[in-house]
Design a protein around this nucleic acid. Structure first.
Lengths: 358, 358
DNA sequence: CTGAAAGCGCTTACAG
DNA sequence: CTGAAAGCGCTTACAG
């Protein structure tokens, strides 16, 4: 072990670990050769290759990722920046990305922003300090300024779900217009005429595209009305308050002098959940009195008292594509234009729309 | 910037970053002093402290975590080893741990094992390569041999949910006996007499403790029967096959010549979901014909066609305690005996048990 | 309180 | 194909 010959000035406080020096000595080669063999890079004679591999194994060599990262100014870790890992579709995204990253020997660092721009900046800074090899992000907003330091770095970045207008970031997201059209068509097919749309922040791609699509689709219909409520950025109000907000939107929408929608479009699965709960508590029957549809599937949604029709975002496929794009950027082709990949939604027609898919 | 004076042998391929050398020069101090100031360690004159902080700010200094990790042989990252980040209670655990870690400036690396011992070993090795500052793990089994290299390292480790018999690992988990007693008591209160228990691998703490508790509690009751089915370790069969297994357990349990339970105890929320789905598809009414209870709450479970009674594991509190224990281990007191913290379950009595909590 | 200097474990341009 | 050597950006024991 090299510790026997290390200077005495600084002592390691943990059990000595095996280094290239140890392997080199045992294999009778230089550390440069050890590096070449273990990195599988430059060509080394077969004989030496074997000796190095054997020595490494005998000594139980374990690479030191920090040393490698320092030398190469790039770690073998990628960062995942998301709003909320607890949101089931995002958990699925994380799972897929983690699994693909592991295949490349890359670690995955999770960064949960709660859609707070402050936390988002904090995490981007942390990832820059870490010199991560790449970042997959679902930024709180589409604003490039909010992730400026990441864009200005040379760290390959791919966004998911949200298009940041910058040539340096690819994006993978579903076809929100197609998803919306399918949902609205199903509602119209069930003779729904009074729509209530509950959408998220218009500072991010999905809710903006979805709202636009609904408005466009309904604008040509006569006798059909649309009432829209948008929520502000998650961070600015917090989850508890968002829940209260949605609950009150639903409550205010029903009653003798209210809008009384016969269809509610919810921009995500949490909204679906809150809406369904509020309707249940107020004994407003789904789908008899009102249809409910949403975006994003979630485990159990098909077992609700009225199974909910949704346009699922297939985050397993989205995650895989995102990793593909990221790896491609990581392996060099950095100076090209922005790639935007659209994935088709996975429609789940269930009873909440009116039963018997139209 | 220091790049102007760096040797020419190796060129940085990215934009030059600010280092201690730059700060030291601008502040007119040594790099040692810069380190002392920015690490907030040894005492430095107020005057120099200010100059260093000012210089760091002016230059837009960003620490290099790899360099620090290499020098200290320990990174500012902790590892989280879990079976499946997509399982909602675990997603919550990850969220809490991530949030607590961020408060300490620690990154969180996610390791998803799918309960595969191979993947578990792979990830432990990765975390060792990373020289993580600590690990919180939900190991696939209680067997210390499976995480031997982690235990043999000097990396502080805390387990969650599963007790690994080794003095070097603290553990935080719920009081499985109390949870079980509460569930069984509720079932008995609703005159249930024919129990079917579907438990997970007996190689891990929770299912073992729960099964023991059920058996013990029912053994003193006359006229009450218990049929037990246990599933093997997740990895050995995979999720799809586990689903099929549970589905067929339920299907085989009902029919003229079958056991026909009037109460099903499910060892986790995924089992609850599969059982509820199978019963729904077979039109077996809950709770009229059979009660269903489980462990772990999950969003939406209260909106099921029959809201499900569960003993929730409060993973937010569990996660916080785990981080506390880990930080305490990380700050030194490593050579003490194993600490085991029991958290009380959070009972959610709902209709699936028979309505109107007994 | 402070600085000069060594060294953490790798990678790689250079010179054979 | 191979090795000697420099250097990545920090931290810290040592000597003032």
């Amino acid at each position: 072990m090299s510790f026997v010959e290390r200077g005495l000035i600084v002592r390691r406080d943990d059990s000595a670990s095996v280094t290239y020096t140890d392997i080199a000595r045992l294999a009778g080669v230089s550390t440069a050769t050890v590096s070449r063999v273990l990195a599988g890079s430059a060509s080394v004679s077969r004989d030496r290759q074997e000796r190095v591999h054997l020595a490494a194994e005998q000594l139980g060599y374990r690479p030191n990722r920090a040393a490698r990262a320092l030398r190469r100014n790039k770690s073998d870790t990628i960062g995942l920046v998301v709003s909320d890992i607890e949101y089931p579709p995002i958990a699925r995204l994380a799972r897929v990305i983690e699994s693909e990253a592991a295949l490349q020997g890359l670690g995955l660092m999770i960064c949960n922003t709660d859609e707070s721009l402050t936390r988002q900046s904090f995490y981007i800074d942390l990832l820059l300090q870490e010199r991560v090899a790449g970042v997959i992000a679902m930024p709180a907003t589409d604003d490039p300024q909010q992730i400026r330091s990441l864009l200005d770095s040379d760290i390959p970045t791919v966004t998911v779900d949200r298009i940041v207008p910058d040539h340096n970031v690819d994006c993978v997201l579903i076809d929100n217009a197609a998803a919306t059209h399918a949902l609205v068509a199903d509602l119209l097919g069930h003779q729904r005429r009074r729509f209530l749309g509950i959408f998220g922040t218009q500072d991010a791609t999905p809710s903006r595209e979805r709202l636009e699509a609904v408005q466009e689709q309904l604008s040509t219909r006569s006798g059909v009305t649309l009432s829209v409520r948008t929520l502000s950025l998650g961070s600015t109000i917090g989850i508890a308050q968002a829940t209260r907000r949605i609950t009150s939107i639903v409550q205010e929408s029903f009653g003798s002098s209210a809008y009384n929608p016969d269809a509610i479009i919810c921009s995500n699965a949490m909204t679906v959940e809150i809406v369904m709960k509020t309707l249940f508590e107020r004994s407003i029957r789904v789908p008899d009195e009102v249809s409910v549809v949403g975006y994003d599937d979630m485990i159990g949604l098909d077992l609700f008292y009225s199974p909910v029709t949704v346009a699922d975002q297939p985050f397993d496929r989205i995650g895989k594509r995102a990793v593909e794009l990221l790896l491609s950027r990581m392996s060099g082709d950095a100076d090209r234009s922005q790639r935007i990949i659209r994935i088709q939604p996975d429609m789940q027609f269930r009873d909440s729309c009116g039963g018997g898919h139209s």
